[in-house]
Simulated scan of single mutants.
Amino acid sequence: MGEQPIFSTRAHIFQIDPATKKNWVPTSKHAVTVSYFFDSSRNVYRIISLDGSKAVINSTITPNMTFTKTSQKFGQWADSRANTVYGLGFSSESHLSKFADKFAEFKEAARLAKEKSQEKMELTSTPSQGGAVKRNVSPAITHVFKKESTTAPPQSPLTSESVNGTEDERAVPDAPHAAEARGGAEPSHNALPFSHSSPGLSKHWEAELAALKGNNAKLTAALLESTANVKQWKQQLAAYQEEAERLHKRVTELECVSGQSATARSDKTELNRTIGELEVALKAKEDELERLKMDVQSANQFHSQRDSLTHKLQAVELRNQALEAQLDELEQRVEADQREREVFRQSLRSLLQLLDGKILELSELREALAKLLECS
């Protein structure tokens, strides 16, 4: 096939959304291998990436492409033939820089290869035009030379001038005068034969001139037709080259797919097993997610209950503080009452003592009055 990978890396692949032309659509579920391929037979560089058996990138590098770094780990380029924009997300900035450097290098190589191919096309098209003109001209010229060699006299002075093609119009009308001038300079024994043959030669060369004019018109028409054919052939050649390149890309893609069919089947089996495991894991994760949702709901309920209890606790604490303040006030009042009672008791004791003294005095007074009464 002649096409070999020359650089490979791994990246996440995206394509621009054809509907919005703004959003990126991922074309691979995970990071895949992205490779530069070089076709030595056609001097073509391509970017190819396969996700299993599916070709997610098949882009031919042309000189008018540009790879743009839009962030530290993301780059993109537009492919007019595929009518899309590809985007690559790398794991690090160094991988992006290496890929961008290789893109610029292979783009320059593609430009040089295109210039060389254009030079070769120009070189090959130029001889083809010459060959076409030569094929059109050669039979007429050969016929004219054959006719002149069979009809013209061997020593005629007009033979060398009639072969000049475009100078015939000037050479033939002046031929009699030129012959007369030359005849005057030659010996006298040549003048008689030339004078007898000049009328026949004049008619002959007039016929030859008319034939050459007709051949010249035919050659001009053939040259114009060959020029138009060359332009048409160039357009057809460009169309054939584009079609051949498209077919070659399709054949390469099919060869890549067929070459990887065996590994694709094993990969498919492995992927099916992995998918089964992932589905089981996904089911477990979904169950766990449901359990976590229930836990979250219960936690939310607990949070709401905690908030309500917190509010109640705060209210109880406020009430407790108020009760403590009342208790302190009551204790102070009890202490004050106790002090007042103590003072009252002391007053009562003093009054009792005073009363006891008064009672004792009254008793002594009674006894004295009783004695006085008895004495009287």
Rank of each mutant, 00 (worst) to 15 (best):
T220Q: 07
D337P: 00
F38R: 09
E119D: 09
A55R: 00
A140I: 08
N229Q: 13
S91K: 08
G276Y: 09
F37S: 05
E329N: 11
V34K: 03
E288D: 07
L289C: 02
H95Y: 07
E253Q: 13
L351W: 05
S197N: 00
Y36M: 08
V34L: 07
N23S: 12
N272E: 14
G165D: 05
T269K: 13
G184N: 13
H248Y: 10
V163P: 01
E340G: 10
S40N: 11
N136I: 05
P26H: 06
L158F: 14
D267V: 04
K285L: 10
I61P: 06
E186V: 10
N320D: 04
G276N: 14
S261A: 15
W24E: 04
P26K: 06
P127I: 02
G357Y: 01
L282G: 12
F145E: 04
A281P: 01
W24A: 08
H143C: 05
C375S: 15
Q241M: 13
A299F: 08
R182W: 11
A104T: 05
L219I: 09
V257Y: 03
L330C: 00
T62W: 00
S125W: 01
A185C: 06
K107E: 04
A104F: 02
K22R: 11
D267W: 04
V56L: 08
G165R: 08
Y36P: 06
I6D: 03
F7W: 04
L369W: 04
T269P: 01
H204G: 02
E342R: 08
N272A: 15
R81Q: 15
D295A: 15
K213G: 02
L192Q: 08
E108C: 08
P187R: 12
S160C: 10
V25A: 02
